[in-house]
Each structure stands twice: as structure tokens, then as C-alpha cells.
Design a protein around this nucleic acid. Sequence first.
DNA 1: TGAAAATGCAAGTAATTGCTTGCTTGGCAC
DNA 2: GTGCCAAGCAAGCAATTACTTGCATTTTCA
Lengths: 207, 207
Amino acid sequence: MDHPDIEQKLGGRGEEEQETRERILSAARQLMAQKGYKGATTRKISELAGVNEVTVFRHFKNKVGILTELLKEIMDVREQLEQGLQGEFSDLKQMLVSYARTYYGLLVERKEIFMICMIEADNHPEVVQMFSSLPMTAVEVLSNKLLAFQEQGHLPKVDPFTAALMFVSTFFYAFMAKYRVNLDLEMVEEELFENASEILLQGIKGL
Amino acid sequence: MDHPDIEQKLGGRGEEEQETRERILSAARQLMAQKGYKGATTRKISELAGVNEVTVFRHFKNKVGILTELLKEIMDVREQLEQGLQGEFSDLKQMLVSYARTYYGLLVERKEIFMICMIEADNHPEVVQMFSSLPMTAVEVLSNKLLAFQEQGHLPKVDPFTAALMFVSTFFYAFMAKYRVNLDLEMVEEELFENASEILLQGIKGL
DNA sequence: TGAAAATGCAAGTAATTGCTTGCTTGGCAC
DNA sequence: GTGCCAAGCAAGCAATTACTTGCATTTTCA
């Protein structure tokens, strides 16, 4: 038995095993995002996963073990963001729209984990470290790109950091409103990407 | 004894009493913001407040009683935001800077309560209602103001909602970064207000 | 089929948590 | 003084929580 964290699927079987483990993780992910770490009791997790509570402890050393496992899911954020900026774009606006899509998509895709991070920031130091990576990474990556544009003479002298911050914040806010506060923004996401990109480029005073 | 929520300071004394009550509230505010509602145990609250645990229950019916009391502190947000837009401004930029100051100041002033709301959104329905007021109210208020400007012909046809969302998000993000994730933005707030207002108006492509 | 591995079930444990009760103490007003 | 009221103190209580142990049962694969 021990802790099968190491063995992946060595023997013939391992599918069922991963299935159970995955169900536990999924239940924990959902509950912790909703109720917080403390609110997600091991009993509730096991019930939602449809397994006995003991099984949870057979798969994970303890409750924090589950959390740390979940946290691994946001490790590769920076890479993904940078990758989203690799391609060639017809113009600056297309790049911004694309970046918005990537970032917002990333948030939605892992909404539970991000919620957990938001909620548990102060309680688990590991979380802070992991979490701080995302919001500022997103700003940094875009900021650097804008700076590059600027140095090529394609942009006048505005503060690229502030610009990046404004842009990224917008989608974070929209994300939070929709998935945390359950507010309807009354706006299609794609439309928001377009509008925000336009405004960031031209300003509201227009040309 | 009962619950002195009603009696304010009728008799001669009542100062000491309010003092204790205030210390309890303050401790709870701090702890709940840090550790969440569950993490802020009544024992920890009493310790931080420097009173006996029983005293807590002499002042509040139960633990939720403390929370609901704290939540009252964000009821008047809309008014304050609208008030901040009442005065006369020399130009649009000054108005934006002023609005940014008001909004950000509001967040900082009541950071603990807002943190509690963020954390506890799903667990306490009353919280959701209270909380949803702020973020979208801030957007709405500004959005309406921009719309008015637009109707007066002072602004071209951009989506005022998106513009307001971008603007408000920026300071919310900055606030979260500083007070939740403890990230240093390496930027003076006042400078951020200026830069963001400039960008919102002119865009990064400049005139 | 048969051994091994994974899961279920029953029960329990020590710690924590929200909250109560009964009693004492100390300060203020009359 | 005397009576009142807030607060402290000691103790406890019932529920919950993370986690364990021992054993029976099922599933899987060779």
C-alpha cells in the first residue's frame, strides 16, 4: 500500500487506481474552491468522491497532501502565457486579443485551483508562492512584450507596466465576477477581449 | 446582560463596554480576514482581543453574530463612490484620478472586510449579496458617468462599461496584489492613478 | 484458480470548536 | 455600605475533525 504517489501505472493495472485517486482530487478541488481548505472536510471529500474516507488516507498521506497535489496544477503558467505570445500577429490589437483569450482561458480552465489560492493565501505559505506567480507573471509577460514594441519605436512613451496591469486586471476582474461572485457581466467574453484591446490601444478619447 | 446590541450607552457608563465590544470586533475582523471565518476560532478571537472567551458570547449571540456585525461596514459603499464623483473637475483626467483615489482608498480602508467577503463568498449567502455590491457598483457608477459624458458629445463611441471595468479592475488588482498576496507593485499608488487615467484616455498608441 | 492489491466497513482516538453554566471579582452609582 | 453590571475563571459538553487500526470483501491480473 504505502503511498502510490510514486508508482504510476507500473503493473498491468493502475487505471482503476488512478481513477479513484483522480476522483478524490477532483472532489477536493471542487470543495476546497467552494468552502476553503478547512471547509472541505475529509469526510465531505470522500462522500463526493464516492469512496470511503479511509481510502482518501490510503492515497494521500494527509489532508495537506491533497492540497499540495492540487497546487501542482498551476506550475506551468508562465510558460503557457509566453507561448501564447510566440506566434506572429498581423497587428498589435490581434496580439492583445489573443493574449486576453489565453489568460482568461487559463483562469477559467483552472478556476478551482485559483479560487483555492485566493482563499487560502494566508494559511498556507506554499500557496502564496505558487499563487503569486500567476497574477504578476501575466502582467510581467505582457509588460515585457510591450516594452519590446516600444523599443522598436512602435509605441510612444507610456508606462508599459501600467498598461499591462490594466489589461490583465480587466480579465481577472471579469473572471472573479463570473465565477466567484456569480455576477453576470452581460457581455460575451470575446466581445470584452475586443473592446478592452481597442481601448487600451486608442483610449476612450479616440483618435 | 442579554445582548447589548440595542442599548447604546444609556446609563452613565457604556464606554468600557463599547471598548470591549470594539476590541472583539477588531480581533475578529483581523483574524477572519487572515484565516477565514472557520479559521478564526472564538478562542483565538478572545485571546487577540485580550478578553475571556465567555465575554465574546456575552456581547454576541454567536459566532455568526460577529460576522454579520462586521458586514455592516460595507453597506454604504455606493453612496461614497457617487459622492466622490459629485464635485466639479477641471477635466476628465482629473475626474478619473479622483475616482481612482476614492475607490482604492475605500478598498484599503476596509481591506479586512473585503478580504472576508472574498474568502467567505460561498459559505455565507449574506456575504455574497453584500459583497457583490462593491465591485460592480464601482464599475456601474463610473460607467454611468462616462455615459453622461458621451451623451454630451465629449466622448466618441466606445463602450463605457468596458472602459469603467478596465479602470476599476486595475486598482482592485493592485489592491489584491499588495494586501492579499503581499506583492510589491514597485509603484507609488498616486503614480498608478495618474498613469492609468492617462492610458484610459489616450490609449498606449498616443495621440 | 489464486495471490496480491485496492477498497469497504466498524470502531475508535485525541484534539478542536462553538457554546453554556455557576460562581467570583471588581468598579461605579446611589 | 449596598446593589448592579461587566468581566474573569474553571469546568464541561456535545459535535466535529483528521487520522488510525483491524478485518472482511471485492477487484484484478497472471
